[in-house]
Design a protein around this nucleic acid. Sequence first.
DNA 1: ATACGTGGTTTCTTTTTGATACCATCGCCC
DNA 2: GGGCGATGGTATCAAAAAGAAACCACGTAT
Lengths: 132, 132
Amino acid sequence: MVTSEKPASRPQSLCFNVYAKDCPTRMVLDRLGDKWALLVLDRLQNDVVRFNALKRDIHGISQKVLSQVLKNLERDGLILRTAYPTVPVTVEYSLKPLGTTLIAAVSSLTHWAETHMSEIQDAQHLYDASKG
Amino acid sequence: MVTSEKPASRPQSLCFNVYAKDCPTRMVLDRLGDKWALLVLDRLQNDVVRFNALKRDIHGISQKVLSQVLKNLERDGLILRTAYPTVPVTVEYSLKPLGTTLIAAVSSLTHWAETHMSEIQDAQHLYDASKG
DNA sequence: ATACGTGGTTTCTTTTTGATACCATCGCCC
DNA sequence: GGGCGATGGTATCAAAAAGAAACCACGTAT
């Protein structure tokens, strides 16, 4: 049990605590608190996708970062990597059951971003106008 | 409308698309896809919290990063910064309505991390055992 | 006098990211 | 048979970001 002092009135049903520095859940949040990982998971929500397809679809991700993200997600048991011995090799990525339990949360984040974008832009303009 | 080619069979109800590099939603995902921002938002869920209290509670965050994160979240209209002219100055941070609409999504991510931690650890051990 | 708490900013070092090039292997085109 | 492209990556290096630590003004308590 890695829980240290709890910060405040927060009903803590488990012995894990994201606020504690050395709590393993922090590692998970490191992984999930990464826009690329969120985008990859979101992209895999309904499809089985190949490496280069992910690279094309998730505009702006570099090959290096994509392979790192995929490796980490695979290690965490969230996604499945399947390589077919074709030539050139074919590699498919898909969600594993554990990843599927996460998708709802991830998806609501990306969906929130798409839904509330205009309100955020308004807020930014207001902020920038008020403080040079 | 910044939407470029859509990646696949993904029902797109809006003109924003997180997959597009220059879509404004990407900026939001940059902000939200950041473990510190997620932790700050989660911490503000039910409380009004002062700067140093956040720093103490969110174990491991540096003062510099915390002030950056807070400034960004304030600019996005998600949180409210209130400074009282006491000596020394008292600064309180709280969720604004827009931030409140986001909390459910953030909260389900952090909660997922706490709930599924052990499964992830199992997967990691399996992975590490299989690939030196 | 000295040390501490407040909410930060500045400086410097280390880590992470992004851009680019490269690899082996094969099919395709002319 | 000589390039060209596609596959799924790794290696290298510069730029950007994060982390650690010091510093700041201000006032209060020791």
